[in-house]
Amino acid sequence: MAQENQDLIRPFADTATDEPIINQAPVQKILNICRAMSLWPMTFGLACCAIEMMSFGMARFDSARFGAEVFRPSPRQSDLIIVAGTISRKMAPLVVRLYEQTPAPKWVIAMGNCAISGGPFVYKNQYGIVEGVDLIIPVDVYIPGCPPRPEGLLEGLFQVQKKLTGRRWWPLPEQARTSDK
């Protein structure tokens, strides 16, 4: 369903960025490692998943251990957008605007099924939601679940780091290795 509408809504967010000032591979590589270790997420709680995003930052899961502790309320100070929740059509233009306001090296995580595809709120003749945030802004990492557990979000963070630096920095948890792949 969502795929059919894809052409209709695209292109949305303006993804054009300026060239980096020092555009040399080794410099960029070092910079990317620095970026990966201090990703600053934006508080972008839209619905239920926002609560899991909060527990991701709290004591038990403690995202600070991976350099992502500073939840910034302003898009200008953050470089990781965690879209956590359903995007209604009313909210869609604002999501696009927030994306465009975030300064250039930026990454987007679509957290939860609503952000990925509209999730449980997709049905015939629905009138109020956007079926997937990737229809309006480019998404780097998807985390399925309704809502995903904070571990899922941590894994998503690792995936962003992997995308940036090309390798996974942390060991796979025992359970994920043994569990069915």
Partner: peptide, 10 residues
């Protein structure tokens, strides 16, 4: 009980 799902495409 696989809660560690995250990927680059849907």
């Amino acid at each position: 009980s696989n809660v560690y799902l995250a990927g680059f495409t849907r």
